[in-house]
Amino acid sequence: MIPPVRRLLAAALFGALLVLPGFTGTFGLGGVARADTSVQTVSLAKTAADVQKVANYWKPDKLKKADNYSPATPATKPAATATSTAAATAGPVTKVLKGRSAPRVSPAAPKKGGVASTMGKVFFRFGDKEYWCSASSVAAGNRSVVATAGHCAYDPRQGVAAEYWIFVPNPGPNGETPNGIYVGSSISMHLDWAGKGDYDFDYAFVTVHRGFTWTEKDGRYVMTDVGRLQDNVGGEGLAINQKTGNVVIAFGYPAGPEPDGSRPYNGLALELCKGLTSWTVAPGLDLQKGVQLQPCSFTAGASGGPWLINYNPAQKLGDLTGINSLTWNRDAKGSYDAVSSPNFDSVTGEIYRHAAALTTPSKVT
């Protein structure tokens, strides 16, 4: 229950409300910098056999139930004693190269032409429970990069990556996968997300394998290759180091309840919010350079959905400048009224560049 006092509340878009100390406004953070700029990489499915294992987990009968899974992932920061363990078990660390110009990434239409279908859902498992989030395809040299929230791919509390991670662009309401299923190959994220659960870095770029669809043959399902993600659905551009005050459109598949218990969203339809950005902070989550978008009443399930500027509704393409990370109840009333994203800066560009350079097998079916 929300306390009957005016206070700034922030909650991870996936569940439990996190009450922060009382604040009275937003804060300018343009000069904030971090000393550690390292990319943490963790493998999800390396080989064709690994892909087959994940694919077998998400047969059509299971996908039909996927929207009933929880739009939720771990919400709290790891304990201080877990920090080094989480970082150590994530995978190799690559130092970001300083002094390089920010990557210039333009939106890409599908190879076959037509309207893009970059947005969709990611399905995965932590422990013995399935979850889902929102995500989008980003244009890249390897034609195989998905952007989502860090908490939709890696749990820093336990120091573990999500299992059975897949991206389904443009999902249907009954488990349909019209543009294919793409198994995650590896996660590229900031070291401070993996090790500390720092919400300044609650984003991940996931390199995915070639896609497939299930085809029924002789009474059983077989995998049919459909090619690279970007070739099939297109990819959003990437715009980093943006000023606040921009008009941004956020997309996602919200499904959870509002603070008053109402459920305006069902998680089956792609929803959008449009508003102006401003700086914000949440010290309890180490968020020191967050970007807030208001108004927006997104709930759980929208996590990882893209923030776009320069959006062309005819092509359904724009430039990615953030992802849904936290939802806010600024006036402590019945509905959320804002969402926030980590600031996409030059470090973000280097993490993206790392994910865009990774390769995957040429054949997985």
Rank of each mutant, 00 (worst) to 15 (best):
residue 4 P to R: 05
residue 7 R to I: 02
residue 10 A to G: 12
residue 13 L to E: 03
residue 20 L to G: 07
residue 24 T to R: 12
residue 32 V to I: 13
residue 35 A to L: 08
residue 37 T to D: 07
residue 40 Q to M: 06
residue 43 S to T: 11
residue 44 L to D: 04
residue 44 L to I: 10
residue 47 T to V: 02
residue 48 A to C: 07
residue 53 K to S: 14
residue 54 V to W: 01
residue 54 V to L: 07
residue 57 Y to W: 04
residue 58 W to C: 14
residue 63 L to W: 12
residue 64 K to H: 14
residue 66 A to I: 08
residue 67 D to C: 12
residue 67 D to A: 09
residue 68 N to R: 05
residue 73 T to W: 06
residue 77 K to N: 07
residue 80 A to N: 08
residue 87 A to C: 15
residue 88 A to H: 07
residue 96 V to A: 15
residue 97 L to C: 07
residue 114 G to L: 15
residue 130 E to T: 00
residue 132 W to R: 02
residue 143 R to T: 00
residue 144 S to H: 14
residue 150 G to H: 12
residue 156 P to K: 12
residue 158 Q to C: 10
residue 167 F to L: 09
residue 172 G to R: 10
residue 174 N to G: 05
residue 178 P to M: 02
residue 183 V to E: 05
residue 189 M to A: 13
residue 199 Y to K: 04
residue 207 T to G: 12
residue 208 V to H: 13
residue 213 T to I: 14
residue 215 T to N: 03
residue 216 E to W: 03
residue 222 V to R: 06
residue 223 M to P: 06
residue 224 T to W: 03
residue 230 Q to L: 02
residue 236 E to M: 03
residue 239 A to L: 11
residue 241 N to Q: 13
residue 243 K to F: 13
residue 251 F to M: 05
residue 258 E to K: 00
residue 258 E to A: 07
residue 259 P to M: 12
residue 259 P to V: 13
residue 271 E to W: 02
residue 273 C to G: 00
residue 275 G to V: 01
residue 282 A to P: 09
residue 287 L to S: 03
residue 301 G to W: 01
residue 306 P to M: 11
residue 309 I to V: 08
residue 310 N to K: 09
residue 317 L to W: 02
residue 319 D to S: 03
residue 322 G to Y: 01
residue 322 G to S: 02
residue 322 G to K: 01
residue 322 G to W: 00
residue 324 N to G: 09
residue 327 T to D: 04
residue 328 W to D: 12
residue 331 D to S: 00
residue 336 Y to E: 14
residue 342 P to L: 06
residue 348 T to F: 05
residue 352 Y to F: 13
residue 354 H to R: 13
residue 358 L to E: 10
residue 361 P to R: 00
residue 362 S to A: 14
residue 364 V to F: 05
residue 365 T to D: 14
